[in-house]
Write a protein that binds this DNA or RNA. Structure first.
Length: 355
DNA sequence: GTCCTGGCGG
DNA sequence: CCGCCAGGAC
């Protein structure tokens, strides 16, 4: 029982260190290089003694940031935005000041799909009347009252737990961690993994997540002085943090929009709308990452953050994965997929389903 | 019973 | 590509 080693149980951690990131950046000016570099894999870099100076917090907004995670979005997608987009429809993505390496190269091209503003506006209106699970939560306390560093760490942990987990369940888990003082790298690092597992229990994949929490806490302690990484690339090196979470943490934790947070809702809906099937490109995108890149080609940057909660809520209530309710959708007239996949009960006949 | 979810490994 | 994780939705 008491074999809580001080070091990571995985020896590969040490043997395979270094040489971690290679070609993660999407900024390759060379069109031929593209982003092919399989940037995933090989997250196991735990170099400690290396640099520590470049991790200066670049807090842009002091403690005022109220919410964590998707709750922070709530304010962004209010009606106040409608005027913003209608006025700014020609804004190219690279017009805004963002991080170092974003869509500056790819941004210039890419024509917006027809009527995209009408569609967004229509979805916003539907979201105002329908109540989606994503926006019926008040958990202002979880992250807001904390100092910036702890708030960021809470954002990271909350993101980690949130996938495959209902918002209220995730909220409960975060609250339990908070009550036990387990929302900092130091305390998590000192806590038994089994304890964490129990506290976060109801969330999906809790075993994996408890393990990832321990690893993340240790990495943050050793490499970032207990703070969280402040760049996309470094966030992606954390176990359990993929593109979706990394962008979310950049948006909410650092207030630094490096890209669109594309989950399966955004992925699915953008494909149904034909928003990511430009003439020159492939017909459709097959992965969320491809969707993110295609979407970033034309979507004005003001929409990069609010589009996620907007489409997530829409995807939970109307444009559902199975049997989308096109009859209730006010923008179905603009949707090339409307009423096409709603009838087929099981359009997927991949599996023989015989046993 | 099958799909869905994000990240990950094979 | 497939499957695993844990659990909910259908």
């Amino acid at each position: 029982m008491s074999r809580i080693l001080l070091r990571m149980p995985n020896t590969r951690f040490y043997s395979k260190c270094l040489q971690s990131k290679e070609e993660i950046s999407t900024s390759a000016p060379n069109p031929e290089v593209r982003v092919f570099a399989r940037r995933k894999r090989q997250k196991k870099a735990l170099e400690v003694s290396n640099e520590e100076s470049k991790n200066e917090p670049i807090e842009q907004k002091p403690c005022g940031l109220p919410d964590i995670e998707e709750f922070a979005y709530k304010k962004a997608n209010g009606p106040a935005l409608s005027s913003k987009i209608s006025g700014k429809l020609e804004a190219t993505p690279d017009a805004l000041v963002v991080g170092t390496e974003v869509a500056s190269e790819i941004g210039a091209r890419g024509e917006p799909p027809a009527n995209w503003e009408k569609v967004l506006e229509g979805i916003r209106k539907m979201r105002a009347t329908e109540d989606a699970p994503v926006d019926s939560m008040g958990c202002e306390k979880a992250g807001s009252s904390l100092p910036p560093k702890e708030r960021r760490f809470a954002v990271l942990i909350s993101s980690l737990l949130s996938s495959q987990t209902k918002d209220n369940v995730n909220h409960g888990a975060i609250q339990r961690l908070l009550q036990n003082g387990l929302l900092t790298a130091e305390t998590i690092d000192k806590t038994d993994e089994a304890t964490i597992k129990d506290l976060i229990y109801p969330v999906g994949f809790y075993t994996r997540k408890a393990s990832n929490m321990k690893k993340i806490a240790k990495i943050c302690l050793l490499k970032y002085d207990g703070d969280i990484p402040s760049s996309l690339e470094e966030l992606l090196l954390l176990p359990g943090i993929g593109p979706k979470m990394a962008h979310l943490v950049m948006n909410v934790g650092w207030n630094n929009v490096q890209g669109i947070c594309v989950d399966t809702h955004v992925h699915r809906i953008c494909n149904r709308l034909g928003w990511v099937s430009q003439p020159g490109r492939k017909q459709k995108t097959s992965t969320p990452e491809e969707t993110r890149e295609a979407l970033q080609l034309w979507l004005p940057k003001e929409e990069w953050v609010p589009i996620n909660p907007l489409l997530v809520g829409f995807g939970q209530t109307i444009c559902t994965p199975l049997r989308p309710r096109c009859g209730m959708c006010s923008v179905s007239e603009f949707c090339p997929s409307a009423f096409k996949e709603s009838s087929g009960p099981s359009s997927k006949l991949k599996k023989p389903s015989q046993k």
